[in-house]
Design a binder for these strands. Structure first.
Length: 296
DNA sequence: ACGGATGTTCGCGC
DNA sequence: CGCGCGAACATCCG
């Protein structure tokens, strides 16, 4: 489930379990999502290093070790950090055994995750890190910062939010959730949003990200897997056909950049006209459309 | 069986 | 230069 909130939860788990601990053994199974390093080299290099701190920017995790080494970790689509027990031992592709007897593992069935072994001074120069924008929670904490990051961007706001170079951490789920909460149509060009819309979007983004963070169960790291039957915890994501919680219009699914976007066609307003409906981006036109809907 | 899935990168065409 | 698109990566689930 990793977007910013889930990655932040993973960072907290790693801090709780690993910070200050020395690695006594490392195992990387063939098929673990290692880049730039073989399982054998990593297994040889890691033992003896102490975990000093864990950082996160967007969806990237930095495990800082002593003697100037860093594990750079991206969880991809299905990556999860678990404290190993007999249940998960077999599915973990990368295992760190620590000097307190605990073992921490990376579980990633789809293997879109990435693990890199870098010198600390090389981290900020790594292309994946160098291109990364500021963390989304940092952006939403500063008034006007979201508008500044997206100023002049002509692409649809949904696409712009997913661009990790502009701000880091927003993924497909929270982009839909934030735009719904801010009542902004996902196809609106970012450059068409006014200051009020950016302000709503910034607050909405912070809200939807924080809401998941505040639900952090994370004591044992197993509840965080939320395995088994579960309800969809999102307001519009994955809910096409269900009534909008604000106006009861059916939520629609559309595709943008090859990925699903969920939105309410009635209460998320485009600043420009969607191609098939007429209409203009002016407040007057929007008011007219609202009035027309009410009378129907 | 088919389609879709929380992410990212690459190549291609415009 | 840069945007949009589709494919690719590998696996699981309904």
């Amino acid at each position: 489930m990793p977007e910013l909130p889930e990655v932040e939860i993973a960072a907290r788990l790693l801090r709780r379990w690993c910070e200050g601990r020395r690695v006594v053994r490392a195992t990387a199974l063939p098929g673990s999502p290692l880049r730039d390093v073989t399982p054998r080299v990593l297994a040889k290099a890691l033992p003896g290093h102490t975990v000093e701190s864990i950082d996160r920017v967007g969806k990237q995790l930095f495990i800082h070790l002593d003697r100037g080494k860093v594990i750079l970790l991206h969880l991809g689509m299905t990556g999860k950090i678990v404290r190993l027990d007999p249940v998960h031992q077999q599915s973990a592709r990368l295992v760190l055994e620590l000097d307190d007897g605990a073992a921490v593992g990376l579980v990633d069935p789809r293997r879109f995750g990435r693990v890199r072994w870098l010198d600390a001074h090389a981290v900020s120069l790594h292309p994946e890190i160098a291109k990364l924008g500021p963390d989304a929670l940092e952006v939403t904490a500063t008034r006007g910062a979201l508008a500044a990051r997206l100023a002049g961007v002509k692409s649809p706001i949904k696409i712009a939010l997913l661009d990790q170079r502009r701000l880091a951490g927003v993924g497909n789920i929270y982009a839909s959730e934030a735009l719904f909460r801010a009542r902004i149509h996902p196809r609106t060009p970012a450059s068409a949003l006014d200051a009020a819309a950016f302000s709503r979007l910034s607050r909405a983004l912070e809200h939807v990200l924080r809401r998941t963070l505040d639900e952090d169960p994370g004591d044992d790291g197993l509840t965080y897997l939320h395995e088994g039957a579960e309800v969809n915890p999102f307001v519009v994501y994955g809910r096409s056909g269900e009534p909008c919680p604000r106006c009861h219009t059916a939520i629609e699914r559309m595709v943008q950049g090859g990925r699903s976007t969920f939105h309410c066609p009635a209460c998320q307003v485009a600043a420009i006209a969607p191609s098939r409906k007429g209409g203009a981006a002016t407040p007057r036109a929007r008011a007219k459309r609202r009035a027309r809907r009410k009378s129907e």
